[in-house]
Each structure stands twice: as C-alpha cells, then as structure tokens.
Design a protein around this nucleic acid. Structure first.
Length: 105
DNA sequence: ATCCTGACCTAGC
DNA sequence: AGCTAGGCCAGGA
C-alpha cells in the first residue's frame, strides 16, 4: 500500500547527487506541508538502507540533523562533501546553493 | 485496541 | 523578539 512513508522514500531517493532537501520540502511534495515530522521519522527507521540518501536531508536552516545518521554526523558531513556539497564546521549547508528548489519527478 | 513518541515546521501569545 | 503549542503519519509498548 502506498502510504506517506513510501512517497517520502521515493522523493528522497530521487534527490540528485550534489543537492540537499529540507524536511518541510519533502513533506510538501508528499502532499502535507505539516507532515515534516513524519519525514524525519520515516528516515529514522530507514527501511531501505543504501537506497535512501538520508544524508541529503537537512532541517530548515540547512543544519544536519545528525545523531541517528549511518555512523555519525561527521560521516554524514563527509558524504555530502564527497558529493560536492560544502558543509560548514557547524554542520551547516548553503541552502542558497545546494538546496534543490525545483523538484521534477 | 489505545496512548505515546519521534531526524520538523509554522503560527500565536 | 523569544517561547509554547499544535499539526501530520505510522510504529512500538
């Protein structure tokens, strides 16, 4: 059954390399702008490891959620930098440059 | 079966 | 201008 989680996974998995998206953005694309919490929780469970690039998801301010990442926020930071996304020392990303504004399915 | 919680965001006081 | 509360969905006890 296609639930919100499935949509979230699909949207997140389609984020191009070198870009990031916010929870609210993903939630809005799934049909509920207020369901940003659900997005975070969906990624928290991460039922499809390797398929879902959780490291490309950041909060409203561009900061990495950290904590429940693959092995640490530092790893997440490294992965983003490896994809060409510059990450600040405070684990913050330049949304102006790296946030995927226009999402085309 | 119900209640609580959880990587967030927006609005109201 | 800073803090509190509410809204969304699904899973675990």
């Amino acid at each position: 059954m296609m639930s919100f989680y499935d949509k979230i996974y699909e949207v997140v998995s389609k984020i191009p390399k070198g870009y990031v998206m916010t929870y609210g953005q993903v939630a809005a694309l799934c049909g509920s702008p207020k369901a940003s919490r659900v997005v975070g929780y969906a990624l928290h469970k991460n039922p499809l490891p390797g398929v879902i690039p959780c490291h490309r998801i950041v909060n409203r301010f561009g900061y990495l959620s950290g904590g429940f990442a693959f092995g640490g926020i530092e790893v997440q930071k490294h992965l983003l930098e490896n994809e060409g996304v510059f990450v600040d020392e405070n684990y913050k990303v330049d949304l102006d440059k790296f946030q995927l504004k226009a999402y085309n399915l």
